[in-house]
Design a protein around this nucleic acid. Structure first.
Lengths: 192, 192, 192, 192
DNA sequence: GATGAATGAGGGTTCATTCAT
DNA sequence: AATGAATGAACCCTCATTCAT
């Protein structure tokens, strides 16, 4: 009955949605939420402004959906880094963290750095808080297992350190000596 | 009592100019650059929109001048924390850092977190880089004097840690256990 | 049983077309022309937007066709109210008028009140004028037969009165004492 | 102190406001609320779009302010038509009504006919109802004084008649024989 | 130095309409 | 006959900026 097959439509839909969300991720991540216009996003995605509103109910909805998408991609990250040895596991976490930072720092920006800019989108903020707390718990346990003196305090510092590394990388970019930072971090936390 | 340069005198000459810059600092720091309008600033400063353009050539100029002003205020900070004992000096820096964060986190936000939002204002970015490098050098020397193994790497990590603490405080605000973080930091770096 | 013209047959041929027109009538009549979107109409009719454009060349065409449909339905109304006794016939007209108003005031709205909203659709206006003139002639004859002094002037007033009743009912709706108005009207024009 | 005198500014303000409101009245009254854009209004008023928002907080506010303005102009109408003799007074009311209709039928449209189009602006509807009720009371008393049999019912009919005359004039405009209608009305209600 | 009236570019959003299938 | 993805013009509104005084 249908002029285009349902499957055809589904493909069209998901392709367009994906293009829009990728463009949004890149632009929001680069210029920030307020400074990125729907026009920008549509142009970068190679679609019309109208189509953005066909798939998302508005700018705010677009950020939310995008963040949700990011979260889903990251949902099974723990499985990748899991290891019996806490030092190895911490090392895996670091490795993953630096890779993410290097390869997709827009994601990093979005999930961690943009929340303050999206007024009223408490959702994004809530996600950031939740994620942070999960990581904190994990760090407390790992540092405790490794035998650090004050696992809670040290875990908090470690979390802040990683956060700060991310932030500084965003600011300094190619000028930031990330390889060396990474090594230092491994020496400090993961040397057997 | 410090001798004032011509520029400083100029800056202080007009009460209205100061009021505008104070309002700008507060609003930019709270809502961000894009989300703050000249109208907002003028209203908060209790002056007309026109006067803002009398003192500043535009919104961008206003941010720049404001950041310059902040820098000048912070120019002599080192005199306040200086101490023969490197651990004491580091402790002084921490104390000052946490006080600034608690009392004027708008400033913190502006100098560190807003640069990405001001498109094309490389100036702000440059200032952030410059300041960061100065701090890094200081930390390297202090940690070296204290006797840390890898002063350069450790200084970088410390800088990132402080940065991360600031960022997390901005995000979590009252939920962030800053007092405990502060104690942990002192224990780690300043215990005699 | 009335013989159907070709046009009527065409109109009735497609169920979807009828559903669209019914939805359009209801929505245009409730929310107005401008405030009703094709999307609304398609959704209410349970069809796709595309189909609306399959049957009608555009929004304007849809209104026109819809009004034409209403006119056709009303074309044989006179047969229903006809009576040898002018007072009885006038009473029949009143009864029909009030019933229509109560049951289908969307139609009333469409035929009488929406014409100004459809810019450039002189067609709708023309229909309203034509219908009004027909009614006027009928009233002149009836009031003349009954024996009113100035049938032309009185017919005009009566027409205006009915029109005003309709408009006031549209505005006040449940607050409008239509039953009493109806009685008063009968007392004035139809008492034997 | 002020560059332009306060008085100068006041004049500027009220002139611009007046121009905008006059344009709005004309366009809303002609094309309806939805079909009239702020762009249209600004152009007709000879000002920029921005200025409309300088004086009114939005389209809805503009209608409301405009209706309020109309109400104020009409506030002292009763003083103009008052008379000891009820038939004379009724005649005065008619005269005024027809003059208003002929000279400012936009006002008429706005106050009576547009209320259904402004969704959510209950204010306009409330004004229409209130005004109508006041007129009804006045008519009841006058017709009672004159000696009509059923003053309440007759007053309601009279109100509807006037309303219908207005509506028909809006629809037919130059084709509507208003002079004759006026005469008929006088003959019916005001002949000594 | 100071005001605020005035402008216009651009942002978010809606919606009539087209078109491939 | 029928769908719904896609477009773009136009809408309401905000805001940096100019300018007369």
């Amino acid at each position: 009955m249908s002029p285009r097959t349902k499957k055809q439509n589904e493909v069209l839909r998901s392709v367009a949605r994906e293009k829009i969300m990728a463009a949004a991720l890149e632009l929001f991540g680069t210029k920030g939420y307020k400074a990125t216009s729907i026009h920008d996003i549509a142009k970068r995605a190679g679609v019309s402004k109208g189509l953005v509103y066909h798939y998302f109910s508005g700018k705010e909805d677009l950020v939310i959906k995008m963040v949700e998408g990011l979260m889903q991609k990251n949902a099974h990250v723990l499985d990748l880094v899991s290891d019996k040895n806490p030092k190895t596991m911490l090392g895996n976490i670091f490795t993953l963290f630096f890779r993410e930072l290097r390869e997709n720092f827009h994601n990093y920006y979005l999930l961690y750095n943009m929340s303050h800019e999206i007024n009223g989108v408490d959702f994004v903020h809530a996600i950031a808080v939740q994620k942070m707390n999960k990581q904190l718990e994990l760090f407390i346990q790992l540092l405790g297992d490794i035998g650090w003196e004050d696992p809670v305090g040290d875990a908090r510092l470690l979390l802040a350190t990683l956060d700060g590394i991310g932030r500084q990388y965003l600011v300094f970019q190619q000028d930031y000596p990330m390889d060396e930072i990474e090594k230092t971090l491994f020496n400090k936390y993961c040397k057997p």
